[in-house]
Write a protein that binds this DNA or RNA. Structure first.
Length: 328
DNA sequence: TTGTGTTTTATTGCCTCC
DNA sequence: GGAGGCAATAAAACACAA
């Protein structure tokens, strides 16, 4: 893109747009300095503040904003024009007071109605166009800041969610270990005193407890478990519950039944978890969060019927979890 | 003083709305 | 079709270290 058409000197019959190079040539050699100096005196003695001395010829050749846009018609007064041409010099920053005033106005309303623009311009001794540009740039800065803020907030939420997710994984792992040990105890009881437990048979009790093989049922089937237990699993599980588990501690029967022995959702939890443990990238994290959270919500209902039927462990409505993790 | 990075002011082109 | 907004960009002004 070519450089903006800012002209030192603002010759009134100029009808084009100068690039920086052209301007440099113009100011340094083409036009005698004395001539320019007499036309565009410094603004030091004027109350015409800011960069109003800059003349834009944007749009003269087809652009929609003509040079006279700077005056917004109602400001297009002859004396102001004359003053304008006598103030031409380099780009200037607004004074602190002007900026303060504009900031205050921006704080009240970041959009600029035409009346307010003219009013501000008069009060600050600037061109309405300068006011409009200042507001435009100010909105751009505000938007950038806002984006940074939003990003930080999202990042924090994401980190928190990920942390919760990891905690849940750990908790599930602990629970699975507990389930395994309790199941093992049951086998010992089934076999009677003096018989080997599953752990002992496999000679890897501790290691097994920490393995990531997900489904205890699969583990049971893979082991040389007593036929009675396998039969119970393959038959009606509710009767298995009454035949085997009800004779034991109620605390464990309930938990084992609903969280582990039940087929369907609970089994899928473990399937999901197995794959979870082998992946760690953020994308998969998000996906597995969604599926796991939904399943956990369902499992929680099974375990704790008194809880709301549509809340997951995160306390979010399950139906909102489609992609609702990121909503405010 | 000078080089360099940042901020501010302004332009340009495109888009939307009335 | 004109007015105004926005994104991208240029360039002056400014800050600051070496």
């Amino acid at each position: 893109m070519m450089a903006p058409g800012i002209i030192y000197g603002g010759a009134s019959n100029f009808d084009g747009v100068f690039t920086q190079k052209q301007r440099d040539v113009f100011s340094s050699s083409t036009v005698p300095k004395g001539h320019l100096g007499s036309l565009f005196a410094p603004a030091s003695s004027s109350n015409f503040l800011g960069s109003s001395s800059m003349v834009s010829f944007r749009g003269v050749n087809g652009g929609k904003r003509s040079f006279f846009d700077s005056f917004d018609q109602d400001d297009n007064e002859a004396d102001e024009l004359g003053e304008y041409f006598h103030q031409a010099e380099k780009k200037r920053r607004l004074t602190d007071n002007q900026v303060q005033f504009l900031e205050k106005s921006f704080g009240e309303e970041n959009k600029l109605e035409p009346e307010r623009k003219v009013q501000l311009a008069k009060e600050l001794g600037l061109q309405p166009r300068q006011i409009a540009i200042w507001f435009q740039n100010r909105r751009a800065r505000w938007k950038t800041k806002q984006l940074e803020k939003d990003y930080d907030e999202l990042r924090n939420r994401y980190d928190t969610l990920k942390s919760n997710y990891n905690n849940l994984l750990k908790e599930k792992e602990d629970l699975r270990t507990e389930v395994f040990h309790l199941t093992d105890k049951l086998f010992v009881k089934e076999k009677g005193n003096g018989q080997l437990s599953l752990c002992e048979e496999n000679k890897h009790s501790d290691a097994l407890a920490k393995e990531t093989v997900a489904d205890p049922i699969s583990r049971v089937e893979m082991s040389n478990v007593p036929a009675l237990v396998v039969k119970h699993q393959q038959e009606d599980l509710s009767s298995a519950k009454s035949d085997v588990f009800d004779s034991e501690s109620p605390r464990y029967t309930g938990r084992v039944h609903s969280s582990v022995i039940d087929q369907g959702d609970s089994a899928r939890i473990f399937e999901t978890e197995q794959s979870d443990l082998s992946q760690d990238d953020d994308e998969n994290f998000s996906k597995t969060m969604l599926s796991t959270a939904n399943l956990l919500g369902k499992a929680a209902d099974d375990d704790y019927p008194a809880t709301s039927s549509n809340l997951s462990y995160f306390g979010y409505p399950v139906e909102d979890q489609g992609f609702g993790f990121w909503t405010y």
